[in-house]
Amino acid sequence: MSDIVDEINAIHREVGRRTVADGEARTVLLRRTYDAAVGDVWDACTDAARVSRWFLPVTGDLTLGGHYQLEGNAGGEILRCEPPKLLRVSWVMGESPAFSEVEVRLTAESAERTVCELEHAAVVPPEMWDRFGPGAVGVGWDLMLLGLGRHLQGDSIDPAQALAWQESDEARTFMTRSSDAWGEAYATSGAPKDVAAAAARATTAFYAPPKPQ
Rank of each mutant, 00 (worst) to 15 (best):
S2W: 01
S2H: 05
D6K: 04
N9M: 15
R13W: 04
V15R: 15
G16S: 02
R17E: 03
T19W: 00
G23T: 14
R26I: 07
T27A: 01
R31K: 10
R31E: 10
R32K: 08
A37F: 06
A37M: 12
V38K: 05
G39N: 15
D43R: 14
T46H: 02
R50I: 14
V51R: 09
W54S: 02
P57K: 12
P57E: 11
V58E: 12
T59W: 12
T63L: 08
Y68T: 01
Y68G: 08
Q69W: 02
Q69G: 06
G72N: 11
R80D: 15
C81Q: 15
P84K: 10
L87I: 11
L87W: 00
S90D: 05
S90M: 06
W91M: 02
M93W: 01
M93K: 04
P97A: 00
V104I: 08
V104T: 11
R105K: 13
A111G: 13
V115L: 06
E117D: 15
A121N: 08
P125Q: 01
E127Y: 05
R131D: 06
P134G: 03
P134N: 15
G135D: 10
G135N: 10
V137D: 08
G140K: 07
D142I: 07
D142H: 06
M144Y: 10
R150C: 09
L152N: 11
Q153N: 09
S156P: 04
S156Y: 09
S156V: 13
S156E: 15
I157G: 02
A160F: 11
L163F: 08
Q166C: 11
Q166A: 14
D169K: 02
D169E: 09
D169H: 04
M175A: 08
G183N: 10
A185P: 04
Y186M: 14
Y186G: 11
T188F: 03
S189D: 01
P192Q: 00
D194A: 06
V195M: 09
A197I: 03
A200L: 07
T203G: 03
P209E: 12
P210I: 14
P210F: 12
K211Q: 04
K211S: 09
